[in-house]
Amino acid sequence: MTVDLTAVRGRSFRARRPWGLWAAVAFLAAAALAGLCAPLVAPQAPGATDLMNSLAPPGTPGHPLGTDSTGRDVLSRVLYGARLSLLAPLGVVLLASLLGITLGLTAARLGGWADIVVSRGMDVVFAFPGLLLAMLVVAVFGPGVVAPVCALAVSYTPFIGRLVRNAAVQEGARPYPEAYRVMGFGGLWVTVRHLLPNIAPMLIAQGTLSFGYALVDLAALSYLGLGVRPPAADWGSMISQSQSAILQGAPWGALVPGLAVLGTVVSLIVVGGHIGGSIVKKGERT
């Protein structure tokens, strides 16, 4: 007797994955909406302190998720914190993509010495830990959002640059770019009009994963006091500021933003994995 295991696996795969994917997309959408609509839905101002009401537990009237050690409403700070916590990694990914695409395409199109110089340069940056680079930049320019975002963008550039360079070289070896050139189209037109769209899904997959990493790195910087300046709310600094309350049996100030980071990063991994999987399947089909 033989059993069609492929069919079983296929059904199981199709039956489970969409739920996880949709849950991840829903979580990300909710996080983005929370940031966008924070002024409308947050019960308190994010910086409103009340020392006499510090470490109020979740469920306290007016503070559904409790208060932190300065009496600030945890829910409101998590909602407002979504803005910086999501925008800053987005800035990292966009800036790194801009740099990576430019460098990758330049290396692929020019080839020769330009390719060697750009590729080795990216290797050097690749070898330097991004978080350490960001800490050095913060030490020079001071804490804030801009300096760490720029530093992390530089350190994330090689991941995208290498991907673009390799994909562009691969695409360049296929017949269509040469055919366009024979037809009289310029190299830049071919690159922008055809080559980039062909590698776009791969870039989106990498960008999604980089977003998750950047979020964790930026949260770590904020946790170390090197990120956003107080009293601005972001998830990393919220975890940092609430850690001592854990000793007092009041973990919610750190737990809630921690769950937000966890949920966002896991969702991004799921979505990024799905996009990556689709690319692989598409490649297998073609």
């Binding site: 020392l51 049996g249 921690g258 769950l259 966890l262």
Partner: peptide
Amino acid sequence: PAALCAALAAALAVTSCSGSADPASP
């Protein structure tokens, strides 16, 4: 992803499990 998730989850578990004392409200 598994390692990252495990690390984050472990951090949160520590966060949520430590401290059995009542919150020191003023």
